[in-house]
Design a protein around this nucleic acid. Sequence first.
RNA 1: GGCCCGCUAGCUCAAUCGGUAGAGCAGGGGUCUCUUAAACCCUUGGUUACAGGUUCGAGUCCUGUGCGGGUCACCA
Length: 503
Amino acid sequence: MELNDLERQRAEKVTRLQEANVAPYPHRSHRTHTTAQAIAAFEASVADGSPAPQVTVAGRVVSMRNMGKLMFAHIEDAADRLQLFIRSNDLGEDAFNLLKRTVDLGDFVEATGTMVRTRTGEISVQAETVTMLAKAITPLPIPKELEDEQGNITRFSAFSDIEERYRQRYADLAVNREVREIFRVRSRMITALRSWLDSHDYLEVETPILQPIYGGAAARPFTTFHNQLKQNLYLRISFELYLKRLLVGMYERVYEIGRDFRNEGVSYKHNPEFTQLELYCAYTDLYGIMETVEQMLAHVAEATLGSRQLSFAGQDIDLTPPWRRATLRDVIQQATGIDYVAYPDADRLRTEMRQRGYAAASDASWGHLVDTLLGEAEPHLIQPTFVHDYPVEISPLAKHKPDDPTHVERFELFVGGMEMGNAFTELNDPFEQERRFVQQGRAYEAGDQEAQPMDEDYLQAMMYGMPPNGGFGLGIDRLAMLFTDHRSIRDVLLYPHLRSRDQ
RNA sequence: GGCCCGCUAGCUCAAUCGGUAGAGCAGGGGUCUCUUAAACCCUUGGUUACAGGUUCGAGUCCUGUGCGGGUCACCA
């Protein structure tokens, strides 16, 4: 370990404790109360006139005010802070002086004593003993805080360097309480999703992450290799094909929450690995899925935030069903003035787009150009909106509309200007599915690296008969962004992907 | 990948036209038995991201590299 000056001073304090026969890292704590429980116990004793409770509390030292033979400190545990009122008289001179010479901000300590109210009215522990639980060596950037009459907290020189916060998330979490809350919200949100799905007869399953053939989405995969089997493998880009095989196997409602991996650009809304919910439901279709999604997410919002209304990027969003439904054609026409149906091939659509001042890559297929146009509309889709009826070219796993073979029964869900999810009436005709795979193969050979490879085993499954069904995929990270009002996916990932830094 | 911005003490930030690298907090030494951004006195701490260049002299100007942020492209 290479230590800087401050760390060296703290390491010396470890030695000082050892010399005084005090363990700097004792095996266990003897906490009897969390800080909140200690305060509650004190208030209860005041209410019924019983003697003030004796407690042992534990936590990280987050502030200290030393006054010679008297010391005030706050400790913080997972939820709250509590003041320690430490007097030389109560501890004994030796113990008090040792504490004074060895304790730093950031250390974990335990204090035993009686709950009291100090002269300024703050509920505190009047400590009889203060024990080191874990000496911190690297100083944590714990900011000073000022709380006004209304309880508003002003922080001074808070740890705010974005890069360091991501790289050393433990330090970020330790000193920025609101960051801890983000991940509590995220966890509640996922719990609520599971609970809703479980109570609607969905079975949670797990499917392979290491796959010999990837598929189910338009994306480039990560590749890896099994040494002993000498087998090339891909990290999954979606769960879709494995989940739909389970409908062949007579489960009617299945879902999985897990990680997808896509070997693509990193941005404020893309991380190389991200969390996805996919669900499949037999005997329903795209329109049934719309209702499922509305009900589910309205429930999740209430269970997580206590409301169906939320605020994201300065805009009020209402998740109360029913949600707006609009065709892709209408949405694009409203945003760009272009009716893509009137330009049914890539050359004509490209020309029209360029005339109207939109970028259109020379090598882009018609489907990609339509997708580019959707990108123009996306930022305007603030309230929850099901954008439905997509061109078949960019939807190889969806069933076409009964009256229009050029479009499929598919929607993408947009909220807050972000794409949140994607759903189809799932294709279950093995002959049609084979033609779509062949078409994708041609696209791949033509240079589309996101085209999906043929999956013979998936076709085999479908040939045994797959019930008509609807499926839905939801970006959990993006939902977390929405629920916590953060515009960067990195803010809702505990450990976002970052480049390695030179040592 | 293109373009723009950033990187200075443990943390948050200064540093004028290119002229001795500073402050607050944290740390160390003191005073102080009801403080709460405690206060007061003294004080340690720097490869200015890295490598090179221009210059008598570079945190500052130039080139390159790294990392991050933004944006465009890509990406359902």
